[in-house]
Computed example of a mutant assay.
Amino acid sequence: MLTRPQLEKYADVLLWGLTTSRVEPYKPGDVVLVQYELPALRLAEAVYAKLLARGLNPVPRLALTPRMEKDFYSLADEAQLVFQAPGQAVLHENVHGAMHLLAPESLTHLSAIDPKRIAAAAVARKPLRDILVRREEKGEFGWTLCLYPTRELAEKAGMTAREYAAQVTAACFLKEAEPVAVWRGLYEEAREIKSWLGSFEAVALHIESDNVDLTVTPGEHRRWLGLSGHNIPSFEIFTSPDWRGTSGRYYADQPSYRSGNYVRGVRLTFTDGVVTDIAAEQGEAFVRKQLAMDPGASRLGEFSLTDKRFSKINRFMANTLYDENFGGPHGNCHVAVGSSYSDTFDGDPATLDGARKEALGFNDSALHWDLVNTEPKRVRARLADGRETTIYEDGQFRY
C-alpha cells in the first residue's frame, strides 16, 4: 500500500508524534510498546528500527487477528471474558510510551456478537487504561496512534486500495520532502488557535446546523487541546466539557464502524447532561446498548472542531481516527459520549483525584465513542457578561 520511502517518512512522523505527546523527554532505556495489526508489519519494522536508534527499548505486540477476536467473544466464558494476562499491570506501570498501528482486515467480524459481551471485556480492561491515564497525567507516559491502509478499509469506504492509500499519504503529508516539518508548522498554528479559544472564558457553546441545536458547557478550569502528537493525523481542537451542562439535540451524519457494527444517522437528545432519547437510521439497538454500558456512557466526554484549512481528508474513511478529522467543504464538529480527557484541565492533571474530577464535571466511562457531524454549522461562545461571539463558521475558526 505504501512505498518504502513513504514508510520511513511515516515512521519519522510517528516518532515526532510520540515525542510531542509526552511532557517529559524520553531517555535512553525507556520502554515503548509497539502494538500493531498484521498488515502494518512493514510499518512496525520501520518504527522498531527507529526506536532502537534512539536508544529506546521497543516491545512489539501483535494484536488479535479478526478470527481470534471473534473466537474470543464467541467462545470465552464469563471468567475468560474478563481475564487479564499476568504481567499486564506491571507493563502498564513501567511502559513510557506506546504506538498503536491500526490496520484492520475486517470491520464487521463482530457484527453477530452481543454488544454486552464486548462491553464486559472493555469494563474489565478499564483499570489497565486508568493506570496509563494516571501516568500520563504525571508526564510519565505518552502515546500515538495511526492507521495503515488495508483493502478492507478501502472497500468499506467505497474506494479502491490506491485511492484509500492516497488519502492516508495526503493526510499525513507523506509526499512532502520533510513531513515532520509540516507537522511542526501545524502544531504552532494550532497552539495560537487554542490560546485564542482559551482567552474567551466562555460559559457556554452553542452549535447550530440543519440537524444540530446543542449547548455545551466548557466548564471551569478547562483548556483546549489538539495536534498534540497523540493521533496521526490530527487536525481537531477539542476540550472535555462539564457534562452536566449539555442540552439539546445532536446528529451524526458521518457513519461509523464500531465493534463490528455499522452505525448511521445517530440522533441524540441531551437533557440536564444525560442522553434522554436515542435514534439511528441504522444500528439503533447497538447504539442503545453502547450508551447503557455504564452510567457515564450516556454523558458527554468531548467536544471538538476541525478546521477545513488544516485537514486534507475529504472522503469517508470508515475509521474514526480519520473521520473525526474530516476537512471536506465544511470541516466538522464531533462529540464523544463516554470518558473525558483529564489533560484538558488547565492545571496539573496529576493533582486531580476522583472527587475533584467529579466536582468539575469530568466524565468517567469505559466508553469513548466519537460521533461526527460534517454539515455547515456555526458555533457561538456565550461569555460571562452575556455577550456572544462566533468562534467557528463555514468550516473554519474565526481566528
Rank of each mutant, 00 (worst) to 15 (best):
P39K: 15
A98N: 09
A122R: 10
Y399I: 02
L41W: 04
R378F: 10
P66I: 06
L305S: 01
V59L: 12
R222F: 08
R378T: 15
L352R: 10
L101W: 02
E375P: 00
L383F: 10
W224T: 01
E37D: 08
L38R: 11
Y164S: 14
S234A: 08
S234N: 05
N314Y: 05
Q6E: 14
S342R: 12
A355G: 07
G248R: 03
T160K: 15
L43F: 06
G29L: 00
V180Y: 00
G347K: 10
T65Q: 13
T306L: 01
T160N: 15
H368G: 09
L321F: 02
R309N: 08
V90A: 13
V275D: 02
S240D: 03
R162K: 15
N363F: 09
F141L: 13
R249Y: 08
I113W: 04
D272S: 13
A285W: 02
V216W: 02
L153P: 01
G248K: 04
N332R: 07
Q80N: 07
L43E: 02
M159R: 14
A366H: 06
H100A: 08
P58L: 13
R398D: 11
G229Y: 03
A381W: 04
P58C: 15
V168N: 03
E178L: 02
E188P: 04
A49G: 13
F83T: 13
Y399G: 05
G142W: 02
F238E: 06
F326P: 01
T389G: 11
E140H: 12
V212G: 04
L383V: 07
F310K: 02
N57S: 03
S111H: 06
D346N: 11
K357Q: 11
T20H: 00
N319D: 05
R125W: 08
Y164G: 14
V90Q: 07
T19K: 14
N319M: 14
L102G: 00
L18R: 01
D277G: 02
A336S: 04
S21Q: 01
E136S: 12
S340I: 14
A112D: 12
T217H: 10
S111C: 04
F238W: 11
D272Y: 07
G158C: 10
L81D: 10
D130T: 13
D385V: 08
G386T: 13
E201F: 05
L41P: 00
I278T: 06
E388G: 07
D394W: 07
S111I: 09
W369P: 00
G219D: 09
L75S: 04
T246H: 03
P295F: 07
L214Y: 01
A384E: 11
M293K: 05
V212W: 05
L52K: 13
T239D: 05
H109N: 08
L15V: 09
Q290L: 15
L128N: 12
A76W: 15
L102R: 15
H100E: 05
W243N: 10
